Amino acid sequence: MFKTDFKSMGEKEPNNSRKTVQMKEVNKRPRINLPALRGFLSQIPGKFQRHLKSRFKRPTEREGANSDMFKLKDAKFNLEKQMQAWKKNPVWDDDQSTSIEVVVPKGSLCQLNVKTNVGLPPDAIYNIVTDPDNRRVFKNIQAVLSRKVLLDEGSRQIVELEQAAIWRFLWWSGTISVHVLVDQNREDYSMKFKQVKPGFMKRFEGSWRVEPLLLDEKLCHPFKPKTLSEYMSCTQCNGRIASKVTLQQLVEPAIVPPPPISWYLRGITAKTVEMLINDLVEEAARIKGASASDLVTTNSSLNQALSNEFQTLDIKERWALRRRKSRRNM
């Protein structure tokens, strides 16, 4: 029955089909769709933000596992109370050794991997590292030339930052401009930085990561806390929380100089990182009211780690050894 009706409609109104075709041809002409245009324009800021986000990778679930277990935004956790616990007992008797690893990936000057423990909660450490005026803490920052927040999501920010940094090595010193994009994420206490435009430096990038360390778990024995809420509860808010700080930094100049110049530049880079870590430890001690004598162990361990990396052989001896090896390979 339906087939018959469709056939009859086609026979009775042949002219309607011509009109339909004509209308379709008219509709093919371009027209300005104002609502669609407004919608496209309104998406430009969002697309720009997504472009910024794409430049930095978010941490994987495995990287953030420890932070998820000890969520520092716990209802029972209070930074002010935590600082009171540290001021009551500012001395940390546990081993606070600092390790520094210097590797030389192909084509780069060096990559530094530094790990150290600092006697302050992650929130306090993160406040120091991300403070816009942190040049008062880090002596190698001579001046902040410009700072612009490109994206602000509350706990996460992307900042374009340009600083004049000081470098020192033996009796030499100078300044260099550092222009980077910084991805700050307080949710997992991470900060990633990457050079904006290549110039003298082909690549300059790295990251900070801060993780919590529960120092007074023995107060909860035989119970082992699984969250910060449980830890603060069983220690009656007297349990201290320290921080495990990890700094990774890759330096790749546009032209990597040959030895022994590259050895000197590598030493300059390592000395600059040494200054950063020492300044961070000293600021943490000042905040919690520790005496200067409490800093001897931490600073000496960092100096020892650097001496193991750079003072195994004199520069001249290393150069002579390199030449002897090259002659043997000929």
Rank of each mutant, 00 (worst) to 15 (best):
S233H: 15
L151D: 14
P30G: 07
L247V: 09
W92K: 08
N16Y: 14
N89R: 11
K57W: 02
L151A: 14
K19H: 02
V245Y: 15
Q195N: 09
N238D: 14
A320K: 15
K288D: 02
P260M: 09
L79K: 11
V144H: 08
G239T: 04
L150M: 12
Q111F: 01
I261V: 15
L145C: 11
Q163G: 00
K53P: 02
P59R: 06
Q142E: 09
L150T: 09
A320L: 02
D133L: 12
K81Q: 11
N127Y: 00
V159P: 04
K271N: 08
L170N: 13
I128E: 08
M275V: 12
D5E: 05
G289P: 03
V118G: 01
I125E: 09
V210I: 13
E160G: 12
G206P: 12
I315H: 11
R286G: 05
S8H: 02
N113T: 13
G154C: 02
Q43R: 01
R209N: 08
E274Y: 03
R135T: 00
S291M: 00
A143G: 00
L250E: 06
L214T: 12
D152P: 00
N16W: 13
L276N: 09
K19S: 04
M201N: 13
P14H: 13
D95Y: 07
V256H: 05
I125A: 05
N89Y: 07
R186M: 12
K288H: 08
K115R: 10
L161S: 12
F200A: 13
S99E: 15
L112D: 06
L37G: 03
V103A: 04
Q304Y: 14
D216P: 04
L302Y: 03
R31G: 09
R31L: 08
V178W: 11
P259L: 12
V118M: 06
N27I: 08
R135N: 00
S207C: 02
T227I: 05
N113F: 03
K12A: 02
Q142A: 07
Q96C: 01
P30D: 10
F223A: 04
D5K: 15
V104E: 15
K288W: 02
K12C: 04
V21F: 08
W263S: 12
L306I: 12
K3W: 07
V144L: 08
R240M: 03
K71I: 10
I125G: 04
K325Y: 03
T297K: 10
E162P: 01
R322H: 01
G39T: 14
E230K: 09
E283M: 02
P212A: 10
R147G: 07
A36N: 06
K288P: 01
V178D: 05
S8V: 00
A65F: 05
F169V: 12
S229V: 05
C234L: 09
A85N: 08
K3I: 06
R327V: 00
P45T: 05
S326L: 13
P198L: 04
E25V: 00
R136H: 15
V245W: 10
L265Q: 06
L41D: 14
V182I: 14
R203P: 01
S307W: 01
N278F: 05
L250T: 08
S155K: 07
M69P: 07
I241N: 10
R328W: 07
Q142R: 15
Q96P: 02
T60D: 15
